[in-house]
Design a protein around this nucleic acid. Structure first.
Lengths: 234, 234
DNA sequence: TGTATTTTATTTGTCGACAAAAAATCGACG
DNA sequence: CGTCGATTTTTTGTCGACAAATAAAATACA
C-alpha cells in the first residue's frame, strides 16, 4: 500500500485536488457514466472526494467553461445535453478540422512526430483486432490528435481536441455497431494518411482527410437514421 | 443616485459579482490596459471590488480557461503573453475562419441576419469616417462576428470570436497606422462581402473572405517588419 | 565579501460557516 | 378536492480565517 493513509485515501498534495476532480468528472461525462442531464451536486462530490466544496467548485467552473456542464444561476448544475438537432454543425466542424490538421501535419511535421503518430496507429489497429470498441474510439482520437499536434497550430488543435472529445460522447452512444467490417477500412485509411503526411503531399493529405472524415460522418448518419429514425440534415 | 448605497458602491445582486469582475478584467486585458505580463493580485482585486477572494478567484479561473491569464501553481498569476514567434499560426486560423464563416453565412443566413450585419457595417463606416481607430477595431470585429453568427455553426463562431478577441490585443498595439487610406478599402470590401452573402454565392463569399483576410494579415505583417524589424514567417 | 542557511513575509489553496435564492412541503381557504 | 400562499428545506454564492508553499530578507559562515 503506497501513498495512502490508514483510511485508504490517497494523500493529496496541495493543489492537486481540483485537477483530480476535473479529470475524473470529465472522463465520467465523456464516457457517459454521467449521461447528459445528470444532476451535479457539489456537497455530494465534496463528501465523495473528502474535500471542501471550494476545489470542487473550481473544477466545475472549468468544466462549464468547456461546455461540458450547464449551470443555472442559483440553481442546479447538470451535465450538458448533446444537441442532436444541430448535429450537422458538429460534422461540418469535424471534417474541416480533419482536413486542416492533416494538411498542416504534412507541411510542418518532424521526424519524431511520425513515430508518435505511428505508435497511436498501432494501438488503434490492435484495438480493431481485439474488437474493443471503446479502445477503438480512444485510440482513434489519440491518432488524429497526434496528427493535429504535428501540424503545430494551437488554435486548430484546441478546437479539434474539443470536437474529438464531444465525439467520444456521440460515438459511445453507438459503439455497438463497430463490430462490422468498417474499422479495418479505417486502419487502411490511417496508413494512407501517414504515408502522404510523410511524403509532405499537402493536396493528397487534404483529400484523404476529407474522404476519411466524410466517411465517418456518413457512418454515424446511417446509425442515426437506422437506430433512431432521425434524419440529420447535412 | 440610483442603485448605489451610501458609500457610492453599486448594490450587487448575489451572483453578479463574478461576471462583473470577469467582464472588466477581460476588457482591461484585451484593451491592453493590463499589458501582457502584468501581475494579477487576488487580494488587491478583492479590495478594489469590495468583495471576498472567492468570486475573484472564480473569474480568474474562467479567464485562465480562455488562455487570457497564466497561473503558476502556488505562485503568481499574470496576463498571458502574446506569442509573436508563432504569430503565423494565428493568422492561418484567422484567415480560415474568415473564409468558413463567410461561406456559411452565404449558405444559411436569414433576412434578419443581413439587417444586423448591415448595421455593424454602418457603424464601421462611421468609425472610419471619424478616424477613430479604437472604434474601427471594435466595429470591425462586431461586423465579422455578426457574419459568423449568420453562419449558424457554434463551433466556428466560438473559435472565431476568440481569435477576434486575441486580434484586439494585437491590433491595439499598432492601431496608430490606421490613419492611412486602408480603412476605406475595408469598407468597400465589407460591402462586397454583404452583397455576395445576400446573393448566396458561396464561392464568391469564400474568395472575398480569403482576399480580405489575407490583406489584413499582410497589413499587420508590414506593420511588424516596419515598426519592430521582426520577420514574421508566413 | 560572497555564499549557504535559517527566518520572516507574502500569497495561494483549502476549509467550515453563514446568508441568499429557489424549490419543496405544508396548510389555509375556496 | 384543488389552488393559492406561507413556511420549511435544500442548495448555491460569499465570506473570513487558517495552513501550506514559495519568495524575500536576514543571519551565519567561509
Amino acid at each position: 500500500m503506497t501513498d495512502t493513509d490508514t483510511n485508504g485515501l490517497p494523500e493529496r498534495r496541495r493543489g492537486s485536488g481540483v485537477k483530480m476532480v476535473y479529470d475524473l468528472l470529465r472522463d465520467e461525462i465523456l464516457d457517459l457514466v454521467l449521461p447528459p442531464g445528470s444532476p451535479i451536486d457539489e456537497a455530494q462530490l465534496a463528501e465523495r472526494f473528502k474535500m471542501s466544496r471550494t476545489p470542487i467548485r473550481e473544477a466545475l467552473v472549468r468544466l462549464a467553461g468547456e461546455g461540458l456542464i450547464d449551470t443555472l444561476p442559483n440553481r442546479s448544475t447538470m451535465v450538458s445535453n448533446i444537441d442532436f438537432l444541430n448535429m450537422h454543425t458538429y460534422f461540418d466542424a469535424l471534417v474541416l478540422m480533419y482536413r486542416v490538421t492533416t494538411r498542416l501535419a504534412a507541411e510542418h511535421h518532424r521526424a519524431e512526430d511520425l513515430q508518435v503518430i505511428r505508435a497511436h496507429q498501432a494501438a488503434f489497429a490492435a484495438a480493431v483486432e481485439a474488437q474493443d470498441a471503446l479502445a477503438m474510439i480512444a485510440t482513434n482520437a489519440a491518432f488524429h490528435s497526434a496528427i493535429a499536434e504535428a501540424g503545430r497550430n494551437p488554435y486548430f488543435t484546441g478546437l479539434f481536441k474539443r470536437l474529438l472529445d464531444e465525439g467520444r460522447r456521440i460515438l459511445r452512444l453507438y459503439y455497438q455497431s463497430y463490430d462490422d467490417r468498417l474499422p479495418r477500412r479505417f486502419v487502411d485509411e490511417h496508413e494512407a494518411m501517414i504515408a502522404v503526411i510523410a511524403a509532405r503531399d499537402l493536396g493528397a493529405a487534404d483529400r484523404l482527410a476529407k474522404a476519411h472524415g466524410e466517411q465517418i460522418v456518413d457512418q454515424i448518419r446511417k446509425l442515426f437514421s437506422r437506430d433512431r429514425r432521425l434524419d440529420i440534415e447535412l
